[in-house]
Design a binder for these strands. Structure first.
Lengths: 115, 115
DNA sequence: TTGACATATTCCTGTATCGACATATGATAG
DNA sequence: CTATCATATGTCGATACAGGAATATGTCAA
């Protein structure tokens, strides 16, 4: 078996940094044209279009035709599975008890480093 | 340029379903042996060991030698970057305003489907 | 129709999986 | 020391990228 497709999953789609960048850009400013995205991305147009195709295929972005341009917009709900998976882990590092634990471990590590 | 390494990033490491499964298993029950993980995973031991190696290399899990066994434990903080990236998007789908917006879009889509 | 512009698609190359299988390493008991 | 158990590592085959370059598609204006 080989590596999973980038289009198989929100997790895989978003594993690529440039695609995350696109998501952030679309979240910051409202619907944008491919050209606008290219303008703010240091990546050639074909590459951007391909990334957009991946994001489209997993439902992260929507397209709307507007003359010869295409307006891409973010579909935030699509990121919910990612959020739902990672969110429960938050309590494992925010609890007071855990912060004490980490502090102790850190001190132990420093102690060990001196010997 | 090819696809990024699975060990290059928490995002890439966690893009693989089996590795997410391991993370969940380690979060549920405390430190576990490779054998225990294999026992609850429908995947051969070498494959599990390799996934653990990937998770180790990005700091998602820690190992501790215990005789001939190795105890793997979760390092939850390592997931923080993932959480920090996705969390801001939550408000885009939980706000009352946005729920109304989605509702309207859905109705428009149904209307369009009838025509 | 023709040309110009915006975007998508195709082809190519180098690289990195993932799992199965076989084998190496390492620790412990007897 | 040797056999055994737990885990790690290496090899192989099929697969899938990501970006560059070239080209196709589609839309508008004159």
């Amino acid at each position: 078996m080989a590596r999973a497709t980038t289009t198989s999953d929100v997790f895989n789609a978003v594993a690529e940094p440039k695609r995350r960048e696109i998501v952030v850009l679309l979240a910051a400013s409202k619907p944008q044209t491919v050209g606008e995205l290219v303008g703010s991305m240091d990546l050639a147009q074909p590459a951007v279009s391909k990334h957009l195709a991946v994001l489209r295929s997993v439902g992260i972005v929507n397209v709307e035709k507007r003359g010869k341009e295409r307006l891409y917009s973010l579909n935030p709900q699509s990121l919910k599975p990612l959020h739902d998976w990672v969110h429960p882990f938050e309590k494992l590092w925010t609890s007071q008890l855990d912060r004490i634990k980490r502090r102790a471990e850190k001190m132990a590590a420093e102690r060990a480093a001196k010997n």
